[in-house]
Each structure stands twice: as structure tokens, then as C-alpha cells.
Amino acid sequence: MKRELRVRIGQIVVATLFIVVVVLMVRYARSVDWPAVGKALAGYRPKTIIAALALVTLSYLIYCAYELSARAHTGHGVPTRRVMLMAFIGYAFSLNLGAWVGGGGLRLRMYTRSGVRPGVVAHIAAFAVAANWSGYLVLAGAILAARAVRLPPGWSGAAASGLQALGVAMLLFVVSYLCACARWPHRSWRVRGQDLRLPSLPMAALQLGLSTLNWITMAGVVFVLMPGQVDYLELLGVLLTSAILASVMHIPAGLGALEGAFLVMLGGQVAKPQLLATLLAYRAVYYLLPMLLAVPVYLAFEAKKRGAGQGQGK
């Protein structure tokens, strides 16, 4: 009964957050000068788009580095080129359609078709999740602990102190994780029928470094597309806030959560047309363009594997 109650409360919280985001977005959409948004989008210079695409490329290369590091951790023998290919496909699908698609089912299918056992694939997924969120906790924890992000009007001093305490807790959690990796490297725990191992301290430090760089790069994409409007550190804080909202609400591509966070936290500093144009451009270069590239690449991957399988069957 207690477990069912916790599940029901979690569902209510998620539904409430979703309703709040929808209401905010509807109100926002009604007040936007859409012709001005189109004008702002058309006003991007080629060098701005090129800079944004360069940062997007760097971010996806870091995702590939997650998977290559996981290969070193698990010891599977899939070639580097194929690992990077699967990483690009998996993260493009995951960011657009949700972690269960790209990070779960698609990763499992691609790796098992490459000769990797399902148990090892679970290790790879766990390693990637730990990598992604370790850097998030460091950056979000540091920003909250330092009170580096301006809170929305009307928030009390107690709320600021609470967020600061949360930031310190985030940093302590990462320190605890690193200490555990130093104290018990390669120790296994059985989780839902799978044996998961802690990485060594150097590998955990690599996770942390890659993830931190990736979140910084993602915020850099937004910063380039909204030059001179908002301080970079504040943009990073807003992006991190939107990421946790999207994760809690299980929204593919952070739809609504990204816009809601930017609306609440930056709506008073940036003109609405420019803010919306920035977010639309960010979605186009960071989500949609990689997905458009990943779909034919995945189809080619499947066709090649199918052809190899038919060839072996003859």
C-alpha cells in the first residue's frame, strides 16, 4: 500500500508539473508577436549558425566519448567506429524520443546485434547515466551553492537558502560517489537481476570531466544563439533547471520544460520574440538536425546487419 501511495503521489506531482508547463506555454504563445519571432530567426548570421553547429558537433562527440569510456569499463570488443556510430544514433533518438527509446531499446538492439551480451549492455547504460548526471550535479550544485542564478521575482530568502543547501548536497553526493569509486573500485551490486560495477576512480573522474564539459557545451549553444542578451552562467543555470524538469516529467526532447524554465527565469530580461527564436533555433540544431541525420544512418546500420546475417545463413 505504501509503495502504491508513493507511486500515486509521484504521478500526481508529474501531472501537476505538466499542467503548469502547458498553462504557461499557452499563455506565452498567446502573447508572442509571431512575425517578430520570424524576423528574429531570419536575422541569424551564418557565422552564428556555424558556431552553434560546431558546439553541437562537440557535444555529440562527447556522447560518443561516454560510450568509448564505457567500452573501456566493460571490456567489450566492438570497434571504435561502430561504437561512435551507435552512440550518435542512440543519443539522437534518446534526446528526441526519450531515454527508453534511444538509451534503452535502441542501445540494446544495436549492441546485441554487434555481439555484446545484454548484461554488458546494462553496464554500458548505467555507466552513461552516471556520466551524464555526475557533471550535472557538479555544475548545478556549484551554481546553487554560490547563488549564481537570479531567482524569479517573489521568491523568498528561505527559498534561496533552501536551494543553496540543495546545491551543497549535490556536491557532497558527487564527492561520495568518487570516494566510493576510490574505496571499492569494480565492486558489484545486483540491481533488477543485473550485476553493476563501480568504475575505478580515474574512470569516474573521466565520467565527471566529460559530462561537465558536455553541459557547458550545451549551454554554449544557447549562448551563441542569444548573444549579448544574458550572462552565460545564468543561461547554464536555466538550462540545468529545464533538464531536471524534463527528466522528472519524462518529456521527450524536454518539450515544454525547456520553454517553461526559460520563460519563468528569463522572461523579464529578454524580449519574447528573441527568446522564442533562440529556443526554436536551439531545438533545430541540437535536436532535429541530428535526428534527421541519425534516421538514415540507423536504417543503413540495420540494412548492413541484415545483409551480414543473410550472408552467414547461406
Rank of each mutant, 00 (worst) to 15 (best):
G75F: 00
N96L: 01
L97H: 08
R109F: 13
Y91I: 06
H73R: 04
G102H: 15
T74Y: 08
G105C: 04
G98Y: 09
G75S: 10
L108T: 13
H76F: 10
L95Q: 00
R109E: 12
Y63I: 01
P79L: 15
H73D: 06
R82T: 03
R81S: 14
A70C: 08
A99S: 11
F88A: 01
R107C: 15
E67A: 06
A92Y: 03
G103N: 08
A70L: 06
A65W: 15
M86T: 12
I62R: 02
G77Y: 13
G102C: 12
L97E: 11
M86P: 11
R82Y: 12
I62C: 05
L68Y: 03
Y66T: 00
E67M: 08
G77H: 15
S69D: 01
Y91R: 06
S94G: 10
G98W: 07
G102F: 15
L85I: 04
E67C: 05
E67W: 09
S69Q: 03
A92M: 02
Y63N: 00
W100H: 06
A92H: 05
I62V: 06
W100I: 00
G102S: 13
Y91V: 01
G77W: 11
G105T: 10
L108F: 14
A72Q: 01
H73E: 05
F88R: 03
T80H: 09
H73Y: 07
G90H: 08
M84P: 15
R107D: 12
Y63P: 00
A87M: 09
L108I: 07
S69N: 03
H76D: 12
G98E: 07
R109T: 10
R81V: 11
H76P: 07
Y66F: 02
M86L: 09
M84S: 14
A87R: 12
L85S: 09
V78M: 10
R107G: 14
A72H: 00
L95W: 03
L108H: 14
Y91W: 12
A70W: 08
A87E: 11
G105S: 08
V78D: 15
A65N: 15
I62W: 04
A99H: 09
I89D: 04
A92P: 03
G75Y: 04
A65P: 13
P79I: 15
H76M: 10
S69R: 02
R71F: 03
Y66I: 00
M84C: 13
